[in-house]
Design a protein around this nucleic acid. Structure first.
Length: 563
RNA sequence: GUUCCCGUAGCUCAGUCGGACAGAGCGACCGCCUCCUAAGCGGUAGGCCGGGCGUUCGAGUCGCCCCGGGAACGCCA
């Protein structure tokens, strides 16, 4: 923030060091009583040939305190800076009200596109709990980048290509029924798929038939194509219902099949640049120099592979969107795959290879091990969503029987709880899906943040709050100051979340605000008798609820005003 | 076997490009609604930060080795 800048500049004058360097040295003390910013003097000890505590003493005395900084105190090897709480409250709250919806945002990414490849559902496969992380993390990043002035391009890279669709057609023609499938949707398709595999074990001719049908899709045979499109439409219809519930939309559904006619370019280019090598019948790019297995571009039968398609997609996206970054929100299992083809793009001579980022995340498993369609222990996203909403509905009936629109709020809170869970921790952590954990709404959960928001809204409603000039000096008590500090820390958290592609940093910033506000709410009476105090506290409450709403919105979570 | 990731309180995790006594939530136990939403707030208990060596004024954080868990490793995506 501005105060940090000012302190760094002031330190720069006294130490003859670069302010930009110094600002990175400044840290936040472990507890608020120790000040708002701390400057560790250890690094100066060598050059100044003095003990850190001595340097701290001298600095604390000689420094010219910038505007808004009340005092500087030496504490061991640190100089602690104490902000003038009134000035801090004024600066932070005015910024909130000036920027409004855009608080925590900026024009950092102005004019630059960011492609975000996420969710990427498979056609004719169920949308299960394992798809939640990519969907929700991708969506949050989409919103975070937009908030920082980038233009996000959300891409659902559909899994809509491969021999499995030949299998689907064979199964459908043998055992399927149009009406049943129209009714049952993806579940029916999965049944057919499972049956195909069972029967193919004893009847290998089925696999031949499947290959033949897939060939017909590739060749554009009308019957094959229409069945294929039908499966696709059925799947998308179901999936879009879930996106609707989650409030997610995509700018592009260009999936695997979309790049079918765009892979020749990749092969030609690789060959032209002398990167392709024939090995065991396949065309590969040798990566042994980079300690990686080769990247296979063409199978020995001439067919393309996953990597070929991803490279084609990257080239297309660069041409189409001229992205500043292209993110792939995909589980860490595919780490090697991305490292391989990113390297291939680099070897092709494209400097933008460095802008390709694998945003990896941990895997979701059940309490009894990995989910698998075959084992049938897979948990469908829709089931989890409805369970969460039902549970929420019960709680509302119990706690807020008079609430109107219970169903709507139950949905917002139930869905919010689920989304929050996927954005609460660092991406890389594995997740064991556990109903009890998912349906627990106490503590640092989505409902907690939503509750805090609703609570603040409730106070403002009851008080008939209207904006008016504020005496910020009455917001200097410990609890109010903590709320101010938490709100003030929000913008940096958003930037860091973008830089690291880690939405949980926003989640944690929201928690910080909620915790501080709830404490404030408990300790200080917002609707104080004193009019000056009341107006100031209401203003703080208003700012709080606004920033919580912004934070939740960045995470893709609704902020109901009552619950 | 090789490479990558992870290992912090009973459980789930955070720990600011190394820095001030290691934090939070859940669970357990104990408190707080005649007063603004108790989906809240407070307190107690609970940790040789997997182990060792090293770098450093200083290591949960960096390097090396070991142990434990996960993932990937050529014609699937």
């Amino acid at each position: 923030m501005d105060f940090k800048q000012a302190i760094a500049s002031s330190l720069a004058e006294s130490t003859a060091l670069d302010a930009k360097e110094l600002i990175t040295w400044l840290e936040t003390p472990p507890s608020p009583e120790m000040g708002d910013y701390a400057f560790p003097c250890f690094k100066l000890a060598k050059t100044l040939r003095k003990a850190p505590p001595v340097i701290a003493q001298e600095l604390s005395r000689s420094l010219a305190l910038p505007e808004g900084v009340q005092r500087a105190e030496a504490a061991g090897g640190y100089v602690n800076f104490f902000l003038d709480k009134t000035a801090q409250a004024k600066a932070v709250l005015e910024r909130v009200f000036t920027q409004g919806e855009r608080y925590g945002g900026s024009d950092l990414g102005k004019g630059r596109n960011v492609c975000i490849d996420y969710s990427s559902v498979n056609i004719a496969k169920p949308f299960h709990i394992g798809h939640l992380p990519t969907t929700v993390i991708g969506n949050a990043l989409y919103r975070i980048y937009n908030h920082l002035g980038f233009h996000s391009v959300g891409i659902n890279h559909l899994g809509d290509w491969g021999t499995q669709f030949g299998k689907m057609i064979v199964a459908y023609k043998l055992w399927g029924d149009h009406e049943t499938i129209e009714q049952g949707g993806v579940d029916e398709l999965v049944k057919l798929y499972v049956r195909f595999h069972r029967e193919a074990e004893s009847d290998p001719s089925l696999d031949d038939a499947a290959r033949a049908w897939f060939k017909r899709i590739e060749d554009g045979d009308p019957e094959a194509l229409s069945l294929f499109e039908w499966f696709k439409a059925l799947t998308l219809k179901e999936v879009e219902q879930v996106y609707e519930i989650l409030g997610i939309r995509f700018d592009s559904y260009a999936g695997e099949s979309f790049y079918n006619d765009k892979m020749g370019r990749v092969v030609d280019e690789l060959r032209g640049k002398g990167l392709l090598k024939l090995d065991q019948g396949a065309q590969i790019v040798d990566l042994s120099e980079y300690k990686m297995p080769p990247c296979i571009i063409l199978r020995s039968d001439g067919a393309t592979l996953y990597a070929t398609r991803d490279i084609a997609a990257a080239l297309y996206r660069k041409d189409t969107y001229d992205f500043a970054k292209c993110l792939y929100v995909v589980a860490y299992q595919q780490d090697l795959h991305f490292r391989q083809w990113f390297k291939v793009v680099e070897l092709m001579g494209y400097s933008w290879a460095k802008d390709l980022v694998h945003v990896s995340f941990g895997m979701v498993s059940g309490t009894e091990g990995a989910f698998s369609t075959r084992k049938g222990n897979m948990v469908k996203l829709r089931d989890v969503l409805s369970a969460a909403c039902e549970k929420t509905y019960e709680i509302i009936c119990e706690k807020s029987p008079d609430l109107e629109e219970k169903k709507t709020v139950a949905r917002q809170v139930g869905v919010g709880a689920l989304v929050w869970n996927s954005l609460y921790n660092g991406r890389i952590k594995d997740v064991v899906f556990d109903w009890d954990a998912v349906l627990n709404f106490d503590g640092e959960t989505g409902p907690y943040a939503q509750y805090t928001h609703a609570r603040a809204c409730s106070v403002l409603r009851k008080a008939n709050y209207a904006p008016a000039p504020v005496d910020y000096s009455v917001l200097t008590d410990t609890e109010a100051a903590a709320v101010v500090a938490a709100i003030g820390a929000f913008p940096d958290a958003v930037v860091e979340a973008m830089e690291k592609n880690e939405p949980y940093l926003v989640t944690r910033a929201v928690i910080g605000i909620c915790a501080a506000f709830n404490k404030f709410y408990y300790e200080q009476r917002i609707m104080a008798d004193d009019e000056i105090v009341r107006q100031a506290r209401l203003t703080l409450t208003d700012a709080t609820r606004k920033v919580i709403a912004i934070g939740l919105n960045l995470l893709g979570i609704a902020a109901p005003e009552r619950m």
